[in-house]
């Protein structure tokens, strides 16, 4: 199994995602340079955190126009897994692969701390190894994580159970305390918290971000087996 981690100028969490695949899951991973178009036969794409293109114009806005994102869009439209973490989530909304927008935190501060989240939907390929309503702790590190969408979009997200993670309490002003959403098909997930930064617990790969990668791993295994 091969994971592809897209690297933009200004990405800074690509190594953490690489480690999640290679060290936690013992699988293969490759970096996908933003100027390239070849996805190198990967089974899942991770858009990592960071400040792609220096956050110029709007966070995630310019990454959308990179050649690699075109390939990722086609990949996503084929129903293949695309996970956007933090800046990756911003890239996904700017690319219209997920609805809404991530705006400045209401506090105006860059927030870098552990936050409690509830897992709202365990039926996705990213979360089936969590339990419904489970509270987990993951780190956040962002200035623009305040999720916004028009009321009808929010209603659709809630009605379709596309809100996958919710902050236990308000941290950045996000509507309905939304921390992570998936698309309608469920193969594209965007989230502000960093699951790849909580893989370890007391020298074991048992951090609370781990089940997300385990879920993704078994989901891919299942699809590979069915082909």
């Amino acid at each position: 199994m091969k994971f592809g981690i897209v690297v933009f100028p200004g990405s800074n969490c690509e190594r953490d995602s690489f480690d999640a695949a290679v060290r936690a899951l013992n699988e293969e991973a490759v970096y996908l340079w933003h100027q390239d178009t070849d996805l190198q036969g990967v089974d899942a794409v991770i858009l990592p955190g960071g400040f792609s293109y220096g956050d110029y114009l709007r966070s995630g806005a310019l990454a959308r126009f990179s050649p690699m994102l075109n390939s990722v869009r086609t990949f996503a439209e084929q129903g293949r897994p695309v996970l956007g973490i933090c800046n990756g989530f911003q890239v996904l909304t700017e690319s219209h692969l997920l609805p809404g927008a991530l705006t400045r935190n209401t506090s105006l501060q860059f927030l870098c701390r552990q936050v409690a989240l509830t897992v709202e939907n365990t039926k996705t390929l990213y979360t089936h190894q969590y339990t419904q309503g489970q509270t987990i702790t993951l780190p956040i590190a962002h200035a623009e994580g305040n999720y916004f969408a028009q009321p009808d979009t929010i209603k659709q997200l809630e009605d379709n159970h596309q809100v996958v993670f919710r902050y236990a309490e308000d941290v950045n002003g996000s509507i309905n305390r939304i921390a992570g959403i998936c698309n309608k098909a469920g193969n594209v997930l965007g989230m502000m918290p960093h699951p790849e930064r909580n893989l370890w617990k007391q020298t074991q790969w048992t951090g609370e971000g781990r089940p997300l990668f385990d879920s993704l791993y078994t989901s891919i295994l299942k699809t590979l087996a069915s082909v």
């Binding site: 114009l57 806005a61 609805p99 927008a101 028009q150």
Partner: peptide, 8 residues
């Protein structure tokens, strides 16, 4: 498409 984000 580029300079503004119509959502916000």
């Amino acid at each position: 498409d580029v300079l503004s984000n119509p959502v916000i």
